[in-house]
């Protein structure tokens, strides 16, 4: 039998498909852009990343139900993750790498060869 609290919770869950916008850092080094997003509870195989027309889309599916039965204190709920970013055309989309560690998704987007800073040798005559 469901308690009143669980009924309220389940209705809420059905009516609104909650999505979490993960907190994200983006930084740039000479040769690449790095995106780091906090996605606790997300498993590697449930991450879906696409780059299309200059838009990078990040989707993460949480496939475990939030336990409500024996809950005594609740400060968080897990929901699917979603975020999109506009990326410039200076990225080598074929070489983008992603990895997950401790609930943080790291994306490394290498810059195209031609936009990387190049040192020009000054030739002596």
């Amino acid at each position: 039998m469901n308690t009143e609290r669980e009924n309220v919770y389940n209705n809420e869950r059905e009516n609104s498909r909650c999505v979490i916008t993960p907190g994200t850092d983006i930084f740039e080094t000479e040769g690449e852009y790095v995106i780091k997003a906090d996605v606790p509870g997300l498993q590697k195989e449930n991450v879906d990343i696409t780059i299309d027309n200059g838009v990078l889309e990040l989707k993460g599916k949480i496939d475990v139900e939030n336990e409500t039965h024996d809950l005594r204190a609740e400060e968080f709920r897990l929901h699917d993750y979603y975020r999109r970013f506009t990326v410039g055309d200076d990225i080598d989309t074929g070489a983008v790498k992603a990895h997950m560690e401790n609930g943080v998704l790291t994306l490394v987007l290498p810059k195209k060869e031609e936009v990387k800073p190049r040192k020009i040798e000054v030739l002596a005559h």
Binding site: P40, H69, R72, E74, E75, F76, V104
Partner: peptide, 22 residues
């Protein structure tokens, strides 16, 4: 970090969101 506390009989379970911490 944010925590959830679950209690069932003689067992208490505490879950904390700690992304990026080894």
């Amino acid at each position: 970090p944010h925590v959830n506390v679950y209690e069932k009989g003689d067992i208490v379970k505490v879950r904390a969101l700690v992304p990026g911490i080894g």
